[in-house]
Design a protein around this nucleic acid. Structure first.
Length: 334
DNA sequence: AACAAGCGCAACCGCCTGGTT
DNA sequence: AAACCAGGCGGTTGCGCTTGT
């Protein structure tokens, strides 16, 4: 039996959202918070599919979204993460809290892919991907998730190296098997760190007040459209913000590096690692929430990820330099 | 000025997963 | 255990805008 449509197609409006619809949706979410999307069209009278409401919210109306040009640092992050994760836009987006997966996906498809292809066509000289001097071992049961994370990341790393013509010299059956398992594990979708950590991800514990207090998008919308909207609560307006705002740091790319480097090495010191690859679960991801230090917000980053990411970040930095210089030494691509 | 081609992006579609009944 | 449901994801499409001729 086929899966029924998410909503009754009859009478459902499609196409671009009007400001009126946006306001209705935003007002509703201000009051009730996101989530339970099924009830949104019912309770608001919007002639929209619940999915459409959710998408409109997450991709456009949600507070904290940054629109417009991507910085070169954001590009670098995307390129790097894409090489590691593939087209897992939601996972990639979790590292750029101000960008939506849709935005990143669009940007990749319309800009980055072409840009990289172009560079490749210009006679790219593939540089060997440096491999780690030694591969860590995973002996304890507690380290298995980390091992899996390592395997998955390693596989990408190897894959990139192979594609790039480098001679990846350390492969193993174990690594490949685990990497394959990792690639096939789509459960990360349910564990999107951003989705879980932000009010927009359906966290039912988030109060409506917290949304109202942080909706810069909403206030813009209301101010722009209605011209008579009262300002959002002053105190709250800056209380809830993405903890990491790329353009606010002196060197976003450095920040990215530090971001990944800021964790401890507890994972290899007998302390159980995060239950899932932190790269996917958001252990290294900070998002909306109360003001805390980075360390407080972040689960410890396992050593192997730190190692991989630190190294890869350097590569991507070089890559982006190359891209801007007009030469290329891409270790990956399609 | 008019038209065509290309581009960018919002939105839709179909599939998948986990939770609930 | 099976069916159903809601939410989430990636791929794709369609339309409006911009640029080139």
């Amino acid at each position: 039996m086929g899966r029924p449509p998410c909503c009754d197609k009859v009478g459902v409006k499609k196409g671009p959202w009007t400001p009126e619809e946006d306001i209705i949706l935003v007002s509703y979410i201000q009051e009730h918070g996101p989530g339970n999307w099924r009830s949104v069209p019912i309770n608001t009278g919007l002639m929209r599919c619940s999915k459409s409401c959710r998408l409109r919210w997450t991709n456009y109306l949600r507070p904290g979204i940054r629109r417009g040009n991507f910085s070169s640092h954001e590009e670098a992050i995307i390129v790097h993460l894409q090489s590691l994760l593939g087209n897992r836009w939601a996972a990639i987006a979790s590292y750029l809290p101000q960008r939506t997966d849709n935005d990143i996906k669009n940007y990749w498809n319309t800009h980055l892919k072409k840009k990289l292809k172009k560079q490749q066509a210009m006679g790219a000289i593939f540089a060997p991907v440096p491999m780690p001097p030694t591969a860590p071992t995973f002996s304890s049961a507690a380290a298995q998730p980390e091992a899996a994370a390592y395997s998955g990341l390693l596989h990408h790393h190897q894959h990139d190296a192979i594609i790039g013509g480098a001679s990846a010299s350390f492969s193993s059956t174990v690594v490949d098997v685990k990497a394959a398992a990792w690639r096939n594990d789509t459960s990360y979708r349910r564990r999107s760190p951003f989705a879980e950590a932000t009010p927009c991800g359906g966290d039912s514990s988030s109060s409506a007040a917290s949304y109202a207090s942080s909706m810069d998008n909403i206030s813009r919308l209301l101010n722009g459209f209605m011209k008579s909207s009262p300002p959002p609560p002053a105190a709250a307006a800056h209380d809830v913000k993405p903890a990491i705002i790329v353009e606010e740091v002196e060197d976003p790319f450095l920040s990215f590096d530090q971001h990944f480097s800021g964790a401890t090495d507890l994972a290899f010191a007998g302390v159980p690692p995060p239950p899932l690859p932190a790269l996917l679960t958001g252990g290294v991801h900070a998002s909306y929430g109360e003001e805390t230090t980075r360390q407080q917000q972040q689960a410890p980053l396992c050593s192997i990820e730190k190692w991989l990411l630190d190294e890869a970040v350097e590569q991507v930095a070089d890559l982006m330099d190359d891209l801007s210089d007009g030469c290329c030494s891409l270790p990956l691509l399609y």
